[in-house]
Amino acid sequence: MKYILMLSGTKAEFDWYAKWSPQDYEAQTAFMHAFHEELKDSGVFVAAEGLAFPDQARVVRAGRDGEPIVTNGIVRGVKDGAPFVTDGVFPESKEFLAGYTIIDVESAEQAYKIAARLSAAPGPGGIPGNIPIEVRQVMSGPPGELP
């Protein structure tokens, strides 16, 4: 069974993260590297990616002719054939995906254990962050036919 472990944050949290000390980044990078190496060693690693910061995020919708209409906020509706953006920018409360790890494990419990290790990644001052990790199953193909 494959599970995705997702780490998200609001823009305020990304801003806070951008102000860590060099030692904090170093500790975090080392942790993430060791964490993923360990997943590879134990044969459960599928994929892991980090994403660009939220200020790089754009919302794309297809226009009437199929051309992309690119905005940097929440599209609220369509007026005279064109989408309009009420907020102008993403609302402060919106959570953005920062990165994810996909693992292939034997049970949900095993996925939770691995997620808990990721949650304890060091924050500023090397203190475990206790970061919330969203865990969701990655859907598989057709079910097996035998009971």
């Binding site: 990655v138 859907m139 598989s140 193909g141 057709p142 079910p143 097996g144 036919e145 035998l146």
Partner: peptide
Amino acid sequence: FNEGYTSSAGP
């Protein structure tokens, strides 16, 4: 045998 049915991600 059963994995032959389930391991595909795309339908």
